[in-house]
Design a protein around this nucleic acid. Structure first.
Lengths: 145, 145
DNA sequence: CAGTGTGTATCTAGTATAGTTACACACTGG
DNA sequence: CCAGTGTGTAACTATACTAGATACACACTG
């Protein structure tokens, strides 16, 4: 369990907003669909808004909205917005520079780890909220009516 | 920091064993190079041994050894040995099946997440302990002598 | 101007990591 | 044969992160 559930819940939220077609969606409604707490949803919406993916309409009849087209939001955008730390941890304490292996191991691995992370990110970049919504609506038992 | 430091320390350990050319290496010596605690090293060695990557020689003059050639141990083997959980977490509580999005979001994302994880793993599979050792020894200030 | 819903703060519980100490036991080497 | 070495493992600690939960001020709508 390396990448927190914030990622999938973030995608869930944005997919709901995409489905709502410009109607503001309340955090309480989102929480009902994701089966979590409204405050958790609001925390995630804060991160998504800071990343420029959503906006909020305050006051009565308010709620969350997509800040841009669902086709312009990739899963990589979501990943970076809610989970954007380095994928691979290094040694807690820097290794012993007096040892040839300790001195060079981190830089020797850097390129490989960067490539691995980039490979993962490029897969995430290939999907958008629009394609996810398409898959969701094509699923079993689509919207009643 | 999604993938724990166990991974890079595991690679560090195996690289040291590869460098030692069949001489057993004690956990204390490894801990000195990785700048950590011998018990932590022994815990990692236990995981690596269970995965068939290392063996141990008990008793005086004992220590850890590679169980097979350094060229036959990929970084993916190490990753799986010490960190082998699912990369992406799902919702803590399953989403609401009464909502079209909640009902289908997980299966809609499954293929993409699997592809992303596989892309990362395939990068890790492309490097072996032997190639890492090569990079380490080619680094600045190689072995004195 | 009343009411709604966000944004934020705070607290909790649960879990994972990594460090540390301690000790029984298997094995080596003389 | 036996003293000593080093592993394997357990128990405990500190730290950090996640996610759930409650509470409340404030902006905004209608």
């Amino acid at each position: 369990m390396a990448i927190s559930s914030r990622f999938i819940v973030g995608v869930h939220i944005l997919t709901l907003l995409a489905q709502s077609q410009g109607q503001p969606v309340t955090s309480e409604w989102i929480a009902g669909s994701a089966n979590t707490n409204p405050a958790v949803v609001r925390k995630l919406l804060g991160m998504l808004a800071k990343a420029g993916l959503t906006t909020s309409q305050l006051g009565a009849g308010g709620g969350a909205l997509l800040a841009r087209s669902a086709a312009d939001i990739t899963l990589l955008d979501v990943y970076r917005a809610v989970d954007g730390s380095e994928l691979f941890a290094l040694h807690h304490e820097p290794p012993n520079p007096a040892c040839p292996v300790g001195r060079n191991i981190q830089s020797a691995l850097l390129e490989t780890l960067t490539r691995a992370q980039r490979a993962l990110e490029s897969e995430l970049a290939s999907q958008t909220i629009a394609t996810v919504l398409g898959s969701v609506l094509a699923g079993p038992c689509p919207q009643p009516t």
